[in-house]
Design a protein around this nucleic acid. Structure first.
Lengths: 356, 356
DNA sequence: TGTTAGCACTCAACAGCTCCGAGTGCTAAC
DNA sequence: GTTAGCACTCGGAGCTGTTGAGTGCTAACA
């Protein structure tokens, strides 16, 4: 009936058990109601009693669960896992949809961050789930360009560009007039200390040293250096963002603890741990975390589908969805896959400096 | 008992009625439960029967409502309105809190948009409500500065600064090498057509004309001009953003239709109408919209407190909160007031070009 | 040996019922 | 004008019985 293979734990269910499991998973995903033996027996052309016997075995093996003695069956996390690993038939996006999405994402693609934000919105709309993403992070990113643009007599725009294509800027006000002299001094310091060095190398200590070494006539540069420090810190730190949580309200009637999940996501919103804990466990591009497989107990009734996106050939961030365990994996897995690949392609295409 | 003054409609309730109304409003805000006559009579040192008589008159006058025949009273929108207009004792922030908030907001104040976004987050935390804001908008804003910064051979950063302090940038890739020649040509066009003109004057038609007038050697500039057009459109358009909706989940048990409000806000998130309809009605800096006073029927059980913030001496945007009608007006009105004033002060201070 | 029909059993969901208590409106007396 | 007293209303909690979907078990069947 079942084969336990060499690795142990991994089993192959009989064809009929697989069929029944698939019916329960797909039926439950479609309806949200527990699935009874009767509705399945037609599909397999056996009697409901036979299905019941098989189901009761699947229950013992941990693939199915019951709410109460006489209720229909619902898939357990293990059942979903088996389904996702062995039984799924991917249901990818149509070509027209792909084109529409690509347009949507490239539309306001003024920065890599904007692209990933656009992608997150599209993914939310596509899947009806909450989305989560991290902004591009590359610890090895170097400071490629720093530019000081006078905006008025005493205000200037400071622009920072890294080798990962991250672009940050801010407006600074300083106490003396911005003239060529000041610009030159600033440029000298930037060239000497920063250009070509890693964004993580710019520490408060280094800054301190540089400021000390400034002649008194250049002391006015200090606010510019502080601003530059903020920008580089901002550029080196990846943010984790959870969006479209309210999408999950659609499941409020079906899954009782959806509102608790929302509370949890609210409290976690700023925290990078949500994604960090997950993606370290797998070197895979794609991780699917079903129910209790999630690190946080608050998410034991939810699933995440996460994938890494790349800038050039370096993986720099994560994009994915958060939903109930009862989601259409066959559709949503390809969706997440497609969007992370697309994000990688678009930001590499638009922002990579590949002309050295 | 009541005085109808010259304008008509405006009434002055007797002192005792006012006291009872205040008790009901404050009690209901604090507990979320309908208020009975017994809990009030102690405070007024009259018997519950007397209070009941007064309450029943307040009901007839439309200031109070009952859920059913024998329930306690809850304030109607009209009741809240009278309370807010006449009975409220403002409960402003402490000095320490003000300092904390100011720090919070100026922390990453790299742009006016960032300041208002920070303020929105602080306001959400402070009030436990959803927040709504519009990004600074100034139809008269002029293009003050356009800068092209080569980032690599064929990519450049384009920066746009308006007289309202709005700063936008993007990375562009063009087909030919970026040399001094190209930079000069671009600068000539920008100086001739754009600097000093309003952001709204940059139309697709104007762009078309300029591109046609270009010599073939300058044709490569086209993508830069398109990018500049996008930036200026982006700079002239104000966005309306609704944030921290999930805060409202805290009210889900008390106000039955909070979840419907969330659905409504979800569908409206992108739309500027939410604020637009409201703020036109009042030239006031502060508008308070209680229950049915809101334009959208979906919000008839909610209140908004909105205020305009200024850049220099021009009002350029709105910031406020959305919550149930049952919110602590005495605290939240000063909160919204303080934060809009602070936003105005910070962005004016940091980004206004007041040295002409 | 696997499959099936039949049957007793379980349990959630629903409707109907009573009881309780908080609160009201009205009336008559102060 | 204020108050005590009283009958009345209604939501909510708790209990009950009914219904129907679904199960597990058993014995018979192919």
């Amino acid at each position: 009936m079942l084969t336990i293979n060499a690795e142990g734990g991994e089993v192959k269910l009989s064809d009929r058990k697989e069929k029944i499991l698939a019916c329960v998973v797909e039926g439950y995903i479609a309806s949200g109601e527990p699935i009874g033996s009767k509705s399945i027996c037609e599909e397999l052309s056996v009697s409901s009693a036979t299905v019941r016997n098989e189901m009761s075995e699947l229950c013992e093996l941990g693939y199915l669960e019951k709410r109460h003695t006489s209720s229909g069956r619902i898939p357990s996390a293990k059942g979903y896992r088996y389904y996702v690993d062995n039984l799924i038939t991917p249901n990818p996006l149509s070509d027209e949809e792909c084109i529409r999405i690509e347009n949507e994402i490239t539309k306001d693609a003024t920065s890599p961050e904007q692209v990933i934000k656009n992608a997150s919105n599209v993914l939310a709309e596509l899947t009806g789930c909450a989305t989560v993403f991290t902004t591009p992070e590359d610890k090895n990113a170097q400071i490629q360009k720093v530019e000081l643009i006078p905006a008025s007599k005493r205000t200037a725009i400071l622009v920072l560009l890294t080798s990962s294509g991250i672009l940050k800027n801010c407006v600074c006000r300083i106490d003396i007039e911005i003239d060529e002299n000041l610009k030159d001094s600033f440029k000298d310091i930037v060239d000497k200390y920063f250009i070509g060095s890693s964004v993580t190398e710019m520490t408060p200590e280094l800054l301190e040293r540089i400021i000390e070494s400034l002649g008194s006539e250049n002391y006015a540069i200090t606010p510019l250096l502080s601003a530059l420090y903020s920008l580089s810190k901002d550029a080196s730190q990846s943010k984790t963002v959870v969006e479209s949580q309210t999408n999950l309200l659609a499941y409020r009637n079906e899954t009782d603890n959806m509102l608790e999940l929302l509370d949890f996501l609210r409290s976690r919103e700023q925290s990078s741990q949500l994604v960090a804990y997950q993606s370290t466990s797998k070197s895979d591009m794609l991780s699917i975390l079903i129910g209790s497989e999630n690190y946080f107990s608050e998410m034991s009734n939810s699933s995440m589908i996460l994938a890494r996106y790349a800038f050039g050939n370096r993986e720099v961030g994560t994009l994915g969805i958060i939903g109930p365990t009862r989601i259409d994996y066959s559709k949503l897995i390809p969706n997440v896959k497609y969007l992370t690949e697309l994000v990688g392609r678009v930001i590499t295409d638009k922002f990579e400096d590949n002309e050295t």
